[in-house]
Amino acid sequence: MDSGGSCRNGGGHLKELPLLSFVVRRLLGSLPLLVGVPTLVFLALSLAPGDVASVYLRPGIPPETVVQIRQNLGLDEPLHVRYVRWLSSLARGDLGYSVAHGVSVRRLLATALPNTLLLGSLSLGLSFALGILTGIFQALRPHTVLDSFLSGVSLFFYSVPPFWLGTMLVLMFGVWLGSSAEGLWTLPVSGMFSVGHEFLGPWEKAFDRLRHLVLPTLTLTAVLTGGVARFVRAAMLEVLGEDYILAARARGLSETRVVLKHAFRNALIPLITLGGLSLPLLLSGTVVVEFIFAWPGIGRLMVTSVAARDIPVVLAGTVLMAFLVVAGNLLADLLYGLADPRIRHGRPQA
């Protein structure tokens, strides 16, 4: 709830600014973050032991060949030269080349990003929807057996490591509940589509993709929903105890109207903050799930790239994540205005 309060203050300060100006200033203010974070990552990876040329190391390789490979990859240049070169390439929209994957970084991201966004946004959307419903449901029946039960379930899924849950789902749906790919209870446990999907019709393709989404989405959603539900429950309980809720009920408003229009709307501010902060999870939160379910997304790409010291890929991914952090916060700020009429960025003042 603190975050909500501070946001209100921030919103008050921002009342003076027209919306566009506000957005532009926020983006400009984020530039240090967008450049600073990748710079730190660049330094950390460059100073860490090992580099991507180790991909080529094997017995029998002549020392002069190792030197030539490093030269061909530009790894023989001083750190600051490589950094400036990366920055200038980035400014031109050139993200560089991935030695570990043998393709351009742009191509890698273009392939992986939509996959992660699909999985991440679906899971995030579902977990917020389910979490909000569960949280409201619990807040309306506080301290009942059902509330305790749902709290226990939420806490369980919030505490469960995604790798364990994912592996259990793989075993359950991949092995125990079905021994063939066509079994009723059998869901795909890896990849984004079936073998031969390109020979399917459009609807069959969509259904095939949906089936592949079930288990990874379930894993991510289960883990995220618990947190959202507990957050909403706490916020709603606090709001439901306020005087204006009592006044609304005294005026004879329906319970649905009291809950949704008066209570939930006021509980929404901290939830928006949570939503904004969760946006980077679209990329970072899927790492383990992508690994377990062989989902070819950004998270997996980042892990393999860090291990291989494939700096251009890691940097591009970091820039993306930093951008999502900025975008998430900006979006939250803008949504505050929608949720709370007292906060309107850029609204002409009377």
Binding site: T167, V175, G178, R300
Partner: peptide
């Protein structure tokens, strides 16, 4: 012929046992 990358060995085993 398809070369599939399934990094998690449990998932790979599951796919193998299911015939995919």
């Amino acid at each position: 012929y398809i070369y599939r990358v399934i990094p998690d060995q449990a998932a790979l085993l599951a796919e193998f046992l299911r015939g995919t």
